[in-house]
């Protein structure tokens, strides 16, 4: 599986414009995600974050603009997303297969990446230790019976099963108690340390800012800041992104 380790490390979008039934969601967004980085994309609601996440992962085809994975244009392909290319989305609201078992949910993550049965079970053995107890011990449970935090972890686990080089998470902290959010981010930190590119899309800045090295702030469909997550410019950009220039 050396192949998957090299694919999908660099995702880039350029000049993205997206409209839903005519309503502008993204307006000229360009973003280069460098391999091995931990990027936070922040912005208030309605900034176009989810749209960007879906375009980055090939789930949505932009109205205009180009998407490249490892330098290869991928704009036209969207029916099976970019999973096979090593780019995986953990969607907003988790979107697990609630009626399927925990185990089946995990296996599907690998199946989507066109992976054989033997490899599938090897990955399962690797992924399970990262999961909370309820997931490890309740593999035959229906996924819908897990708690919110466990479900979020399972959604991350399902993405890990695809052995991605880039993992994009859309609002992983939504609806979770802070203590559970920490757990999710801990796993993301581990993934990033092992070389996986991580992109988190968040509305509430606090947790993402603790882990992210680079930051992109989105406001009303446009990027208002892109750069390091730690310097003063970033803090200023956040304020502006959320509050407007009035302050």
């Amino acid at each position: 599986m050396a192949d998957t380790k090299t694919k999908g490390g660099t995702v880039a979008v350029a000049g993205i414009v997206h409209r839903y039934a005519g309503v502008l969601a993204l307006n000229g967004v360009s973003l280069d995600v460098q391999p091995g980085t931990f990027t936070a994309v922040l912005g208030p609601n309605g900034a176009g974050k989810s749209t960007l996440a879906q375009i980055l992962c090939g789930v949505l085809r932009p109205t205009q603009g180009s998407v490249t994975v490892d330098g290869v244009a991928r704009t036209r392909r969207s029916r099976r997303a970019f999973v096979e290319d090593g780019v995986v989305l953990v969607p907003e609201g988790r979107r697990l297969f609630g009626q399927l078992t925990v185990r089946e949910n995990l296996l599907l993550g690998a199946y989507g990446a066109r992976c054989g049965t033997v490899e599938m079970h090897r990955r399962l053995a690797e992924t399970l230790p990262l999961m909370p107890r309820a997931v490890q011990e309740g593999q035959e449970r229906a996924a819908a019976t897990l708690s919110g935090g466990e479900q979020q972890m399972l959604a991350v686990g399902r993405a890990i099963m695809a052995a991605p080089r880039t993992i994009v998470l859309d609002e992983p902290s939504l609806g979770l108690a802070p203590i559970l959010i920490d757990k999710v981010y801990e796993v993301l930190g581990q993934l990033n340390a092992s070389g996986v590119t991580v992109v988190v899309i968040e509305q509430i800045a606090a947790h993402a800012m603790r882990y992210a090295k680079s930051l992109t702030v989105l406001d009303r469909g446009s990027i208002v800041y892109s750069g390091s997550a730690t310097d003063d410019a970033a803090e200023e950009a956040l304020k502006v992104g959320y509050l407007g220039h009035a302050t």
């Binding site: 992962c57 789930v59 029916r79 099976r80 997303a81 999973v83 096979e84 995986v88 989305l89 969607p91 979107r95 697990l96 297969f97 599907l108 993550g109 199946y111 989507g112 990446a113 066109r114 399902r158 695809a162």
Partner: peptide, 8 residues
């Protein structure tokens, strides 16, 4: 969600 995990 099936499409998101790469199912055709």
């Amino acid at each position: 969600a099936a499409r998101m995990v790469g199912i055709d």
